[in-house]
Every structure is written in structure tokens, then in C-alpha cells.
């Protein structure tokens, strides 16, 4: 039972990593935030639902990127302040993730 759950989580994470890699490759040259967050791979990650949240937070921690809209959509929260810099917004989400026990 636990082995099955771990296998499922592992497959989800592999799926997330594959989609995240494609998203980053396809959108890293864009300045348009709209183009970044309407990329099909980004949509697919949001469609993974709440199980994707820890994966997104770990990715945000290891390689900060434009995950803010996805996190806001999946969590229905926003721990950032309106005038936050990119780095401050990353830190706000990581602190939220730690407070929720979703990341170390």
C-alpha cells in the first residue's frame, strides 16, 4: 500500500519535472508574463491539482522561476505583498510552504 503511494508520488513528480522542463525551455526567452502562464505545459501542471504544490515549491526553491500564478491558483492563497521584488515573492512562497509543512 505504502509502496503503491510512493510509486504514484514518484510518477507524479516525474510528470511534473517533464512538464516543468518543457515549460522552462519554451518560455525562458519570453518577457511576456502572459505567454509564460498560458503555455500549455503550465496549464497541465495546474491541472495536476494540489499534488503539484510541493513539486512547484521545491522547484521554486532550487531554481526560482515564474510559479507565482500557478501557486496562487492551486492554493487560493497569496502570501506576497504587492510591492515585493521577485526574490521577496519567492521567499514569501517558500516561507508559506514551510509553514504548511510542504517543503523543508
Amino acid at each position: 500500500m505504502i509502496a503503491d503511494i510512493n510509486e504514484t508520488i514518484s510518477k507524479l513528480e516525474q510528470n511534473f519535472n517533464a512538464l516543468a522542463g518543457k515549460w522552462q525551455s519554451e518560455t525562458c526567452g519570453f518577457s511576456s508574463i502572459t505567454k509564460k502562464i498560458t503555455n500549455l505545459n503550465y496549464y497541465k501542471i495546474i491541472a495536476m491539482g494540489k499534488p503539484a504544490i510541493p513539486f512547484i515549491l521545491r522547484s521554486l526553491k532550487n531554481q526560482p522561476d515564474h510559479w507565482f500564478v500557478a501557486l496562487k491558483a492551486l492554493t487560493d492563497r497569496d502570501p506576497t505583498n504587492p510591492n515585493d521584488s521577485f526574490e521577496q515573492a519567492v521567499e514569501a512562497w517558500l516561507n508559506w510552504g514551510r509553514s504548511e509543512g510542504l517543503i523543508d
Binding site: 518577457s31 511576456s32 508574463i33 502572459t34 515564474h66 507565482f68 500564478v69 496562487k72 497569496d78 506576497t80 505583498n81 504587492p82 510591492n83 515585493d84 521584488s85 521577485f86 526574490e87 521577496q88 515573492a89 514569501a92
Partner: peptide, 15 residues
């Protein structure tokens, strides 16, 4: 150089 600028229809920091 502290945050991205782009016109989007909702408030989401850091945009």
C-alpha cells in the same frame, strides 16, 4: 531589475 514588468489583468506579485 528587481521585478518583471508586464500588463496583466490581476494583481500578482512580483509582476
Amino acid at each position: 531589475d528587481r521585478r518583471p514588468w508586464w500588463p496583466i489583468p490581476y494583481d500578482t506579485a512580483p509582476y
